[in-house]
Amino acid sequence: MDSLVFVQNIKKFCDLKGVKPTVACRESGVGTSFINNVERGQTPSVAKVQMLADYLGVTTSELLGEKTEPTVQDDGLTEGERALMKQFRQLTPEQQDMVLRMVQAAADNQQ
């Protein structure tokens, strides 16, 4: 694990989510000193990396900066739909519920 990349990714995904890294660490349950500990060379547990990734709405691979081979996208989604899903995953559960209610309301008005 490259701790510098990991910490940069934490900060990047926090910025995308609109939360401060210390807030994300506290609210995810990994602890407010998590980033400082990683910067000092402490290797975080898999469970804590997963907790933070879940909170930020990303995969542990994305958070750790692991390079993955692109997969064939045969899911029937357009590029726009995939981009929307990526943004949706970065929302809090409450924000996701709000978006789903808005989409449902819009769909109901089409009928």
Rank of each mutant, 00 (worst) to 15 (best):
D74A: 12
E94H: 05
P44M: 13
G80K: 14
A107S: 10
G18D: 02
K20N: 03
L77W: 06
M102G: 05
L91W: 07
M85C: 09
E69H: 06
V30A: 01
S45F: 08
N37T: 12
A83F: 08
K17W: 00
E66S: 07
A53Y: 05
L100R: 10
F13R: 00
P21G: 02
E62S: 07
Q95P: 06
P70E: 04
T60W: 02
T60V: 07
L77I: 05
G31E: 02
P93R: 06
V49Q: 04
L63F: 00
M98R: 11
D54R: 04
M1V: 08
P93W: 07
G29N: 00
E27H: 07
A24F: 00
G18P: 01
T22I: 10
V38Q: 06
Q110S: 10
L52E: 03
A83C: 09
L63I: 00
Q90N: 10
R89W: 08
P93V: 05
L52Y: 03
G31H: 01
V46P: 07
N9I: 03
L77H: 08
F88E: 04
K11A: 07
V23S: 03
A47R: 15
M51I: 02
A106T: 08
Q50R: 14
Q8E: 15
V38F: 06
A107W: 10
M1L: 10
T32K: 08
T92V: 05
P21Y: 05
R40S: 15
S45A: 13
D54M: 04
A53H: 03
Q73L: 13
T68S: 10
V46N: 13
G57Y: 03
V30R: 00
L77Y: 11
Q42A: 15
E81N: 04
R89F: 09
M1W: 06
V46K: 15
K11R: 10
G80H: 13
D54Y: 02
R82L: 15
T60G: 00
C25N: 01
G41E: 09
V30G: 00
M98Y: 11
K20Q: 07
A47T: 15
R82Y: 10
M51Q: 15
K11I: 05
Q8F: 04
E62A: 09
F34D: 06
T71C: 08
L16R: 08
S61F: 04
G80S: 14
Q104N: 13
N36A: 15
K11D: 05
M98I: 12
P44S: 11
S33A: 15
S3P: 11
K86Y: 11
N9E: 02
T92K: 07
I10G: 00
C14W: 02
A106Y: 13
T22R: 08
